[in-house]
Design a binder for these strands. Structure first.
Lengths: 226, 226
DNA sequence: GAAAGCAGTTAACACACATTTAATATGATA
DNA sequence: TATCATATTAAATGTGTGTTAACTGCTTTC
């Protein structure tokens, strides 16, 4: 998920806090909405379905704890991460907050850097969730993108980066013919210009390491992994 | 983790306290064991490997602080949460306790409701130990984020902050390759710009201190902890 | 408040090896 | 067979990392 698609709801009764937190997060590229009390927070949460809610504990009308409990009851918001803003040392509110279903705490006074990195850490969960499969299994080959290594018949093989990415691309859709142009685009990047024989050489190395017959040449078009 | 699988060790020299705390927690479904002094506590801790230890500071034979220090040296108990029972206002014991490696405090007189929700909050960490783990054990290395120290084969090693955070990041997902960019983001902070060789130098120091072969270079990509 | 110590960073260079090129061979297709 | 695309090999190039030492602020210490 891209940053600009991530929605954050800020809830605090002090405009200053909304201001500073909002500024820091929106300059990171997140979409920000705000509310100034618990009731408003619940309404906005249902409407915009934020990925993350940062909410003060102490607020007029309805406090953060109550709002949190309320939001937790809405199954549409089950994946929403809720974190409280709390003054350092407000011990009891932390306990109550966790009971209400909070995921984390940010203590006041707020330090922008800490805030931003905490938010990133919290949102990383989302990223990991819907990121494309990091491990692909094709025949007797297991390609582990996360660890940058492959297993061939259970034996670990380390490939240099370009070879790894080329294999990774071809094997991502076994049988599909990738045009040379497309390969250049996706492995090298569209603005990089390399000579005409470069792909061939990498294919050659893969054939040596993985097996001759896995890489079929389609003359005049490109290559496919079988 | 289910409640009935969670083990709590209570340590206090007053039977009344053991009684009341034990009653409240076991009726919540936790598995309770008890000890009446520090020496006994250490023995029981090693034996039952509790998830949480609630321990009085003042005890005959060996006090809680000493017992806590002792328990913290056992890498098998690295994930154990230790919280002290202390009379309200015993300031010094709190400071000494945190030095010894305590995670939290519960003040006497004990209010059952506060006790139970505090215990719940402390144990919540266990639930999501993937994302928020304060203590990571990888092979012969125990990384204790909360206390900013690591144990290698049971020996405490103090690392400077950046080295610690770099190790901590890499070891948080052994095998995963962290891209240089991602490392900069998460250890240095995204707006900080440091020279290209800075990561290398820190990796070098970690290799010296922790072991050459733990840190694999993936050229053109980044590093991984193995 | 000077000296010493430490964490963190930078700079400079070495060096391995990943990547590309160049030159030539092979093979397919019409 | 003539042509064109790919295969193959070795050599050239270049990028990225390793390593050391020096530099910069900070904190600690006396």
């Amino acid at each position: 998920m891209k940053k600009k698609d991530i929605k954050i709801l800020l809830v605090d009764d002090e405009p200053d806090i909304l201001e500073i937190v909002g500024y820091n997060l929106s300059s990171e590229g997140y979409q920000i909405s705000t509310a100034t009390n618990g009731i408003e927070a619940i309404a906005k949460a249902k409407k915009v379905k934020p990925h993350l809610i940062i909410m003060d504990v102490m607020m007029p009308e309805m406090d953060g704890i109550e709002a949190c409990e309320n939001i937790r009851k809405d199954s549409n918001l089950a994946n929403t991460i809720i974190t409280f803003l709390t003054a350092r040392g407000e011990d009891y509110s932390q306990v109550a907050g966790f009971d209400a279903g909070a995921d984390d705490y940010i203590t006041k006074p707020i330090k922008p850097k800490v805030l931003v990195s905490k938010v990133k850490a919290l949102l990383r969960r989302l990223k990991d969730d819907d990121s494309n499969a990091q491990i692909v299994t094709v025949g007797n080959i297991v390609i582990n993108r996360e660890e940058y290594k492959i297993l061939k018949d259970g034996v670990e093989i380390i490939l240099p980066r370009k070879e790894f990415e080329l294999l990774s691309l071809l094997a991502s859709r076994p049988g599909k013919v990738f045009k040379r142009e497309e390969i250049l685009d996706r492995v090298w990047g569209n603005e990089v210009i390399v000579g005409g024989r470069t792909i061939d050489v990498h294919i050659r190395k893969l054939r040596e390491k993985i097996g001759e017959d896995h890489f079929k040449t389609v003359k005049g078009v490109g290559y496919k992994y079988v």
